[in-house]
Simulated scan of single mutants.
Amino acid sequence: MAERYSSFQGGTQRWLWQRITAAFLVVVLAFHFFLLHFVNHASEVTFGMSEARMQTLTYFSLMILFLITATFHGVNGVYNALVNQGLTGQKLTAVKWTLIVASALLIVQGVRTALTWAGGVPI
C-alpha cells in the first residue's frame, strides 16, 4: 500500500493553518474567478471598475485579507518544504528570517497599493 505523505507533521499549528488558509484561498479565488470571468469578462474590466470595487469596504477588506492569507500560505509552504528536505540549524534560521522580512515587505507594499487604488494614501 502507498503510505500517506505530507511535508507537515500532522496535528501541528503549521499544518492546521496551511489547511485553513488553503480553504479560504479556494473560496476567494472562486469569488474572484466568478466576478471577473462571469459577471464581468476580463477583457471588459477597466482600471476605473477595479478602483470602484476597491472603494467598497467589503471588497477592500477581502483583498487585504487575501493578500495576507496568500502570503502566509505560500511562505509557510516553502518553509515547511525546506524543513521536510532536512534544512536545520543556522541555515533554517536564516531562511526563516528572510521569508519573514520578504513577507512583511510584500504585505506592506500590497496594502500601500490597495490604499492608493481605493483613493487613499498615494504611494
Rank of each mutant, 00 (worst) to 15 (best):
T58K: 03
A94H: 05
V101D: 13
L35A: 15
F34P: 02
A104T: 09
H41T: 09
F8D: 13
R4V: 13
P122S: 04
S103K: 02
L57P: 00
L106C: 10
V101S: 11
V26K: 10
V121N: 11
R19V: 13
I68C: 02
S43Y: 08
F38I: 06
R19D: 15
G48P: 00
G86N: 04
N40E: 03
N40D: 13
S6Q: 07
L16S: 15
T113M: 04
N76G: 03
E3P: 07
T88W: 00
T12K: 04
E44S: 09
S103Y: 00
V121K: 07
L57S: 15
A81E: 15
A118G: 10
Q18W: 11
E51A: 12
L65Y: 05
E3G: 13
Q109D: 14
I100G: 09
A70G: 11
F47P: 02
V27Q: 06
V95M: 04
A2I: 11
K96N: 15
G110K: 02
G77I: 04
M54C: 11
V26P: 01
V95K: 02
S43N: 09
R19H: 15
L35K: 08
G120E: 08
G74W: 02
A23L: 14
S6Y: 03
A30M: 11
F24T: 05
A52Q: 12
F38M: 07
S43A: 14
L29P: 06
F34T: 11
N40L: 07
V111I: 15
W15H: 10
L92A: 14
A94V: 02
A102C: 10
A52K: 01
E3S: 12
V121H: 13
V95P: 00
S43C: 00
T21W: 04
I123L: 10
G89P: 00
Y59L: 14
V121F: 01
T116K: 01
A42P: 03
E51I: 04
V101W: 03
G86S: 13
E3H: 08
T113Q: 08
L65R: 01
G89R: 02
A81C: 00
F31G: 06
T46V: 00
N40V: 09
L62S: 11
V45Q: 01
F72K: 10
F8M: 10
V95D: 09
L36K: 04
V78S: 08
I107A: 07
G48I: 06
I20V: 13
L65C: 11
R19G: 15
G86C: 04
G120F: 00
K91Q: 12
I20E: 15
G89F: 00
L29R: 13
T98Y: 11
G89C: 02
L35H: 06
S61K: 10
Y79P: 00
L35I: 01
V101F: 07
W15Y: 12
H37N: 15
M49H: 07
P122F: 01
